[in-house]
Each structure stands twice: as C-alpha cells, then as structure tokens.
C-alpha cells in the first residue's frame, strides 16, 4: 500500500488524498511526500495509521526523505505506527493544540482520550462538542466494527477549527448494516447509516435498548448546524457534507442526500470506516442547545414513521 501526503491538509480537499491511496500489496505500507511541503488533517493521519495497523508496524515505513514540514507526522504520532523513527529534531507536542493519534481499546483509554480533549485550549462549550463527537464515533467503532479505532484531534488556532477523525479497520458500514438492511453498495450503506434511527441492531427505525440509531445522524447534524465539513469513507463509498450557505437557514434533513454534499462509490476500497469532521470554534454557541435541535430532528423523523402517544419525563420542582 502507498499513501502520499501533499500540501493539501484540509477536509475540503481530502478526497484527492483518498483517490491517490494505493491499496495493492496489503501486507506492506509506504508513506511518502509529494513536493516540498506536507500538511495533514487528522483524517489523513488516522486512515494512514489504520492502514499501518493492517499492514503491521514492521511492514510500514515513512520515507526518510520527508521534508522538514513533515514533522507534523511526528507531532501527531504517526511514527509510532511504523518501524522507522523520525529524522527531525526532538518533537515538542503542544497538548493545548492536539490529541496525537491514539488507539482506543477499552473504557480506560476512552476516559484518557476525553481527558486529553479536555486539555485543548478551546472554550467549555466547544470542548463539550469535541468530546461529544469523538465519544459518539468511538462508541460506534467499538460497538459495531469490533476493532479498536484510531483517533486524532487537532486544533488550528489560525482558522479557529478543530479537526477530528476516528478510523477503524473493521467490517465497514456495509458490513455493519448488511445483515439487517441489505444495502446494495458501500455508498447506500453510508447513506442509510446517516439517517436517523437506522442501526445494525434491529429492523425498522430505532434500535433495541442497545442503540437508538442516532449517533452518526447526530454528528452529521452537528456538522450541519456548524456549517462544517463532515465525511464518512468506508469501502469504496464516501459521503461528504459540504459547507452550508450562510445566507440560508440551517435546517437538518433526515436524508443526507438532500443536504449539499458530494458522494462517490469509486474510491479505493478501504476495509474499515473513517469518519472526520471539523468543529468551528466560533459556530458553537451552546452545546446543549444544538443537542436539542438535533434530538428534535431525530424524534421528528421517528414520529413521522410512527405516530403515537408518548410520555414525557417527570421532572421534580423548578428547573435549575
């Protein structure tokens, strides 16, 4: 396998990076740079680390002729997934600006991940948003793929964005939904998974007590409300939510195809699932307010499907 980093490190143009991934010879991974400048979004780093895990550490290598700007790969911990060491000087990691690549295998590592996100130099509401998104994606990966995901988070102070990526080398979205929903291809599976109430746990909208089918829908919803990029790449399929138009009212739709998007089913077939998004620090007002908006949309979609009488929770006394 071959992965080529270039000077394009935004989620906006990450599609070109995916198109250039060479998945032949799955037992070996080469990482190199194209040109003299290397930029990397957590999405690119997380999928590269997942491929290194698939190939094995001793069969994975980063080109020694990596330009100086390639130190971002060292700062974000990519060298820990390959056999060779970085040729750059001592790496200095700024804990307030990044959570380097880490595998999350159990509850203990999940808690450690949340603590590291808590150290990012962003506001309280923004931190909650990042923790919520990462928590949802990690729980999904642990619950459905059966493989420990790789997570990376990076804060870009200049653009005031937090890049998030969670990638697992598991059975992919199609593999998770095939038993119950029978999607025709990877892209249709992704489209289904992004709808509210769809889960591999049960037929029909909504899951059993183990899953509500809301996690991925809610994360997409948050990206939509923040007018940010969000993508899912699994198998040969990729869905990318494009940035919303500021002149239009932010509105969530149940079917992701109705939002401004790019979708393809012709990428190199990646055995696993990558979910990535950006969180704009300035677009997060109140996390709970946004959570409520997404929850209302989720319920609306379910109610449409099943009109019936519902109870509301009993809350004692005055709200605090």
């Amino acid at each position: 396998m071959k992965v080529i980093f270039s000077n394009q490190g935004n989620l906006r143009n990450v599609r070109k990076f995916f198109e250039k991934i060479d998945l032949s010879e799955p037992g070996r991974l080469e990482v190199r740079a194209a040109g003299g400048w290397v930029a990397a979004h957590p999405a690119q780093l997380a999928i590269t680390a997942s491929l290194a895990l698939q190939a094995g550490k001793w069969e994975s290598e980063i080109d020694e002729k990596m330009p100086e700007s390639g130190k971002i790969l060292a700062e974000m911990g990519l060298y820990e997934f390959v056999r060779n060491k970085a040729t750059f000087g001592a790496e200095v990691r700024d804990e307030g600006a990044m959570v380097p690549l880490m595998m999350v295998r159990d509850e203990g590592e999940r808690a450690e991940l949340m603590r590291r996100i808590g150290r990012l130099m962003i506001g309280v509401e923004q931190r909650r948003m990042v923790q919520y998104v990462v928590g949802c994606l990690v729980d999904n990966a642990l619950g459905w793929s059966g493989v420990a995901p790789v997570v990376a988070v990076k804060y870009y102070p200049k653009t005031r964005k937090v890049g998030i990526a969670v990638c697992d080398a598991g059975k992919g979205v199609w593999g998770s939904l095939d038993e119950v929903w029978r999607p025709r291809n990877d892209l249709e599976a992704i489209r289904m998974a992004l709808r509210p109430g769809v889960t591999g746990a049960s037929e029909g909208l909504g899951g059993a007590n183990v899953a509500a089918g809301m996690g991925l829908f809610a994360v997409r919803g948050m990206a939509k409300l923040m007018r940010n990029y969000f993508l899912v790449y699994s198998g040969a399929g990729m869905y990318e939510l494009m940035r919303g138009d500021r002149r239009l009212k932010r509105k969530l739709r149940a079917d992701p195809i109705l939002d401004r998007h790019f979708a393809t089913n012709d990428l190199p077939p990646f055995l696993g699932t990558l979910v990535a998004m950006d969180v704009s620090v300035d677009e997060v007002g109140s996390f709970q307010g946004m959570m409520n908006e997404v929850t209302r949309m989720y319920v609306g979609a379910l109610v449409e499907a099943d009109e019936q009488q519902t109870y509301i929770p009993k809350i004692m006394g005055r709200n605090v």
Partner: peptide, 18 residues
C-alpha cells in the same frame, strides 16, 4: 436545556421500543 434533550429522548424511546 438538559430537560429538553430528555423530552426528545423519551419520545424517541417510546417509539423505538414500542
């Protein structure tokens, strides 16, 4: 605001578990 989230989840729960 947390109460509002609770209401939404309760509604969804009753539909999905029905």
């Amino acid at each position: 605001e947390i109460g509002e989230t609770m209401v939404g989840v309760y509604k969804g729960l009753q539909i999905t578990l029905a």
